[in-house]
Simulated scan of single mutants.
Amino acid sequence: MSVIRVGTRGSALAMAQTTAVANRIQAVTNGEVEIIPITTHGDVSRESLSSLGGTGVFASALREALLNDECDVVVHSFKDLPTDPYAGLTIGATPKRADARDVLCARAGFTLATLPEGARVGTGSPRRAAQLRELRPDLEVVDIRGNVDTRLALVADERLHAVVLAAAGLGRLGLLENMATEYLELSDWPTAPGQGALAIEVRDGKPERLLAKALAVLNHATTQATVAAERQVLARLEAGCAAPIGATAVLDDGLLFLTATVYSPDGTRRITASHAATPESHAVADLQDAALDVADRAARELLAGGAAEIAPLTVTS
């Protein structure tokens, strides 16, 4: 493999995070790396994320390009990736996670508590919309689409009072310090499963030697385990990113903690489950076993508490 080709969406954010991954691959392999921009349906459609179906609208074109040998790896935002396996592909590495929190980007330095009554706040996420309605039912929650710059422009042009965005995305674009007016803490405002993490996907089978070396260096076992726990909740509920679900997993003092919350779309109800597991060791396999165990217990509790009745989930027996 003379050149490692890295596929990505063409948005500024996707290019920024993929460039960081490509630079690390190049540093590890000391070889040539080429970035291949790929347009996805989610990039060109102006429909809302929920009406598009949410899960997979940003991933399918990248995956097809990978299967068609147009690139050797693709870089996804993990929160955009469906939980179902994709035939012929596997996650080759999960780099260390960035900040998983959401932030408020508002006019005049407003926080969520100080926004004026009736303020217009934009988001394309059903989960964020439900959280906004729960904490501030007086707000007008506006469904928006577009890249980060487009969303921030809605505030700068005073069409909205604020938008809610991912801290990780703003950080990767170098905008976090200047644009965030409030960090929304995970204990009160859980974010999407996998938020802040990247997934490096490859074709099934043994990777070429240099690529395998890069994947081994890029993978971060703790991030791999915590993201697996969060995403397993989605898998057990058979819910996609169109469902209003937040999940936070952390590894602390030898314990893997997971808290998952399902919201009703109108923000009037929520169900939360919290569980912990003790991995046998910090080996990848033991961390993954603990992640699946804690997620399964959390999902069972959510279902028993009526999660399928308050949120748009598709659940089988």
Results as ranks from 00 to 15, higher is better:
A98G: 08
Q17V: 14
T83L: 04
G194H: 11
D204S: 07
L198F: 09
A98Q: 12
S274M: 00
A308L: 07
G42S: 07
W189T: 05
L256Y: 02
I4K: 02
F58Q: 00
V33S: 10
A93T: 10
P207G: 14
V6I: 15
T90A: 12
H220C: 13
L255K: 00
E201N: 02
P244H: 09
S317Y: 06
Q224F: 06
L256R: 01
H282G: 04
P244V: 13
E208A: 15
P85N: 05
I245K: 06
E64A: 10
I36K: 08
V142H: 04
V75I: 15
A308D: 10
Q288D: 14
G196Y: 11
D157T: 14
V6Q: 05
A285M: 07
T19Q: 14
D84Y: 08
L251M: 15
T111D: 11
G92S: 06
P85K: 10
T29M: 07
T150C: 00
S77Y: 12
G240M: 11
A290Q: 00
L186R: 04
N219I: 07
V44R: 07
V163K: 08
T278D: 01
L115A: 13
L210I: 01
V6T: 04
L154I: 00
L211F: 00
L13W: 03
A285D: 14
N219Q: 05
N178S: 15
L258R: 01
L251D: 00
R159D: 15
E177T: 10
T39V: 15
A119Y: 13
G174A: 05
L66M: 06
Q288R: 10
L139K: 03
L176W: 01
P190V: 05
R46D: 09
Q195W: 04
E230Q: 14
I245V: 15
D286L: 07
L237Q: 05
K79N: 14
A61P: 04
A228Y: 03
R107F: 06
G306F: 02
S51K: 11
R120W: 04
I271G: 08
L211R: 01
I200H: 00
E182Y: 08
G194I: 13
W189L: 08
G240W: 13
L175H: 08
T261L: 06
I38M: 03
C71P: 03
S317C: 06
C71H: 03
D204N: 14
A199P: 01
E280T: 04
A162I: 08
L66P: 07
A167E: 13
A291V: 03
G53F: 14
F58N: 09
L135P: 00
S187P: 05
I245G: 06
Q26G: 12
A299I: 02
E177V: 05
T18A: 15
T8L: 14
V28C: 12
L52Y: 02
L132D: 06
A168V: 07
E34C: 04
L176K: 11
L154K: 08
L135R: 15
G146Y: 12
R151H: 03
V57C: 09
G56F: 05
L115D: 14
I271N: 02
Q17R: 13
L184M: 13
D157M: 06
L132P: 07
E309S: 13
